[in-house]
Amino acid sequence: MTGAGAGIGHATAEQFVRNGYDVVLISHGRERLNRAASKLSSTHGIRALPIPIDVADAQAFDAAAPRVERALRPIDVRVNVAMATVFAPPMFINRHRTAPFGVPGASAVAIAMAAVARRRGRLR
């Protein structure tokens, strides 16, 4: 689950763990991510694996997907909540920093997870 360190992503992760899912929490903030994983694990008795990755880094997702499979179990659900919200006049927004959280970031996650599913024979 991307964007799981805080906000909507963390709230989404909480809903999954309340239903007994083990979760992989992906976000760029290592400390916040570790705290979130620890809290979810201790509160709900599930496994929460924190993986600090920038969603714009497709190679990091490729490297992380097999690690997730080894550490937990096959991936059943993929949730992409990572986003960047900018409150500023358009002339002050750095599109090179915010754009990767949209389509490119979601695509990197989908491609990495599809490769895992294909290796498991669940995607042709």
Rank of each mutant, 00 (worst) to 15 (best):
R78Q: 15
D54E: 11
A37Q: 03
I75S: 10
D62Q: 10
K39M: 07
V81P: 12
Q59I: 05
N80P: 13
A65Y: 04
A64P: 09
I46G: 02
R73C: 00
L49E: 08
V81K: 09
V68N: 06
A48N: 01
S38D: 11
S38Y: 00
A63M: 02
R35M: 06
V81H: 11
H44D: 08
S42P: 03
A82S: 13
D76T: 10
D62R: 08
I75K: 08
T43C: 09
I46C: 08
L40K: 02
P52R: 06
V55H: 11
R47T: 10
R78T: 15
V79I: 13
A58M: 02
M83S: 15
P52N: 09
A82D: 14
D62H: 09
L72N: 09
A56I: 11
I53T: 04
L49R: 07
P66N: 06
S38H: 08
R67I: 03
F61P: 01
D62T: 03
G45M: 12
R47N: 03
A36Y: 00
V68T: 07
R67Q: 08
D54H: 10
D54P: 06
L49W: 08
D62I: 02
D76K: 04
N34T: 10
D54M: 04
V77I: 15
R70K: 14
F61T: 01
I75W: 04
V55Y: 09
V79L: 13
S41V: 09
N80T: 14
M83W: 15
N34Q: 13
K39P: 00
S38W: 00
A37F: 01
S41A: 15
A63K: 03
P66H: 07
V81E: 14
N80V: 12
V81G: 14
R73K: 05
A60D: 02
A37M: 01
F61K: 01
R35W: 00
R47F: 01
E69P: 05
V79G: 12
V81W: 11
R67W: 05
I46R: 09
A58E: 09
V55M: 11
S41G: 13
P74M: 01
I75Q: 10
A48I: 00
R47H: 09
A65D: 06
P50G: 06
A48R: 00
L40Y: 03
N80S: 14
S38M: 04
P74S: 05
A82E: 14
L40W: 07
P66L: 04
A36M: 01
L72V: 10
D57E: 11
P74R: 04
A56Q: 13
S41T: 15
I51E: 02
P50N: 06
I75L: 13
D57Q: 06
L49M: 11
S42Y: 08
A48H: 02
E69Q: 07
S42T: 12
A65W: 05
A63S: 08
E69I: 03
S42C: 10
Q59K: 12
L40A: 04
D54W: 11
V68H: 07
L72H: 08
I75T: 13
A71I: 06
I53P: 02
D57M: 06
I53N: 02
I53G: 04
P50C: 07
V81F: 11
P50F: 05
A82W: 12
D62K: 06
D62P: 05
D76R: 07
A60K: 01
I53R: 03
D76C: 07
L72Y: 11
V77F: 11
V55F: 10
H44W: 10
N80L: 12
R78C: 15
A71E: 13
P50M: 08
A37I: 02
